[in-house]
């Protein structure tokens, strides 16, 4: 904050007499501007976060808060031996590990395709983007019908090619992958748009120069396109990763976490334990752990980003 030369003499004059007053006034002015946001963030973000931490050390039952007791690390110890928790953790990890690369690469491939100068390409852009315009709840309901083994479209379409039938959401080994496929289908168009904007920012002359040097398409992709959108690529992968760990709507609507817990996720468990089973204490321990996982991912990402960009 450097005052402009015109202002400077003015300020120096007043400095001696009104410094403290001015400091106070500026403090309150700043607070007046930032205050509403700060208060809201405190009440609806910081306070609940601290409460979650606190509850995780109690046996708070939703209907009988008056009987809550401090139980130390009991809830956390229970986590370690809870097979359902370990399964949810594993499911969340599998989902994230597959969705992040799959969705990012699909989006990139789509973006490269629709970046071609072809007639009617705009239609394809819209087509790939269309699922984004719905909502996760809508597509989850829709795909529950499509995945129905007996009366679903998926099996009737695949039967044309002679594949299937599959059980999809009814099978514990297929349910999570069915959800993964649908999620990528829904989300890829969004990221395609971001990639597309990035691709269009790469100046044409770079490609022209490469063509003159005799580079083929593949070499152009590796040496010009990818470096040109590197930042976007990283950004998308990171954002998708955090979003993927929060998987909830799809299993909630499509499978209720089943069959046999094969689509239970961490967030689903936080919800189920807290609201269905009313076990606020244990649910809070799960929530705190979930926060730690997100925190670790973010910190590692940031560190990695800093290291690679240098």
């Amino acid at each position: 904050m450097e005052p402009s030369p015109i202002l400077r003499p003015n300020r120096n004059e007043k400095k001696v007499t009104a410094y403290s007053n001015k400091g106070v006034r500026q403090f309150w002015l700043g607070m007046g501007f930032a205050g509403p946001a700060v208060v809201l963030l405190f009440v609806f973000l910081i306070m609940p976060a601290l409460l979650a931490l606190y509850y995780s050390f109690t046996n708070y039952y939703l209907l009988t808060p008056q009987l809550s007791e401090f139980v130390g690390f009991e809830n956390y110890q229970r986590l370690a031996g809870d097979t359902l928790f370990l399964k949810s953790l594993k499911n969340t990890a599998i989902f994230t590990a597959i969705v992040v690369p799959l969705q990012t690469l699909t989006a990139l491939a789509l973006a490269l395709l629709v970046n071609q100068k072809l007639k009617g390409i705009k239609f394809f852009r819209v087509a790939f983007f269309a699922p984004v315009v719905t909502s996760m709840v809508i597509v989850s309901i829709l795909w529950t019908f499509i995945y129905n083994p007996d009366t679903g479209l998926a099996n009737s379409i695949l039967s044309i090619v002679g594949i299937g039938p599959y059980q999809y959401l009814m099978d514990k080994d297929q349910a999570l992958y069915s959800i993964i496929f649908m999620s990528v289908w829904q989300g890829a168009g969004y990221q395609m748009m971001i990639f597309l904007a990035g691709l269009q920012d790469i100046p044409d002359h770079q490609y022209e120069a490469a063509s003159i040097d005799g580079a083929n398409s593949w070499q152009k992709l590796i040496h010009i396109t990818i470096p040109g959108i590197r930042n976007i690529l990283v950004f998308i992968a990171l954002v998708t990763m955090i979003a993927a760990t929060k998987l909830f709507i799809q299993p909630f609507v499509m499978t209720q976490g089943g069959p046999l817990d094969s689509t239970k996720t961490l967030v689903y468990m936080v919800y189920e334990t807290g609201f269905k089973f009313r076990d606020v204490g244990y649910s809070s321990a799960l929530a705190v752990l979930f926060f730690m996982i997100v925190l670790v991912i973010s910190v590692v990402q940031r560190k990695w980003l800093r290291d690679t960009s240098q």
Partner: peptide, 10 residues
């Protein structure tokens, strides 16, 4: 198992 009832009924 005897397939008299289906897991995926409408």
């Amino acid at each position: 198992k005897e397939k008299v009832v289906s897991m995926s009924n409408g």
